[in-house]
């Protein structure tokens, strides 16, 4: 079967799968991004069983990564668990919204042997807790960090650098409009 043929089968498979998931796990949002990638939204407490189901019954044996998107303005984190089905060559992103206040989520370390690593990273970088996840409190890439988790949207990298590092001397840039005004029409165009 050529790739085009495969795509068609995949699309149907994905559509049916998403329907099954919606029925079974009340996924309230389904988004088909492309032939071989869809996103599903599930409830915080249904995530584990949804992942378990996808892994054991639907062939999504591979966990590509776990990540989070910070929607600071709306006060929530969106966790994203990206799974892959090798036979159908399709990805599914299972997403869960959790509140930004004291964020915490069920651990999936027992479903995938590398799951704890992602959770450890998310704890460090976003402050999301995964109770029961091995070594979740150990430092991951940071060492002796005492600021807020640095991947949070409110962590201002520019300000961090300004506070931390000296500015290099002799680095001044002139504003184009202001320079031209000063040199060419000093008294005109004010309000």
């Amino acid at each position: 079967m050529g790739y085009a043929g495969l795509q068609l089968v995949n699309t149907m498979f994905m559509q049916e799968l998403c329907e099954r998931m919606t029925r079974q796990f009340d996924c309230d949002q389904v988004m088909h991004q492309k032939d071989d990638l869809s996103f599903l939204r599930v409830d915080r407490d249904r995530l584990e069983s949804a992942l378990m189901y996808l892994k054991t019954h639907e062939g999504f044996v591979h966990l590509s990564f776990v990540t989070v998107i910070d929607y600071i303005e709306d006060g929530f984190f969106r966790l994203n668990y990206m799974l892959y089905n090798y036979d159908k060559a399709t990805n599914i992103g299972v997403q869960v919204d959790i509140t930004r206040e004291n964020p915490s989520m069920h651990s999936i370390h027992h479903l995938w042997a590398q799951g704890w690593t992602y959770q450890r990273e998310l704890k460090e970088m976003y402050g999301i807790d995964f109770p029961g996840s091995p070594r979740v409190d150990e430092e991951f890439v940071l060492e002796g960090w005492d600021g807020i988790p640095p991947m949070l949207r409110e962590f201002d990298t520019a300000k961090f650098c300004e506070d931390r590092f000296a500015k290099r001397d002799g680095r001044e840039s002139q504003d184009i409009k202001q320079t031209m005004r000063d040199n060419l029409y000093p008294e005109r165009g004010e309000s």
């Binding site: 001044e172 184009i176 320079t179 031209m180 040199n183 060419l184």
Partner: peptide, 19 residues
């Protein structure tokens, strides 16, 4: 990495900030 600076060889004129 870039700053716009004034140089002796060039003045502002219409269409050219001189920087």
């Amino acid at each position: 990495a870039i700053d716009m600076v004034e140089i002796a060889a060039k003045d502002s004129k219409k269409g050219d900030s001189g920087l």
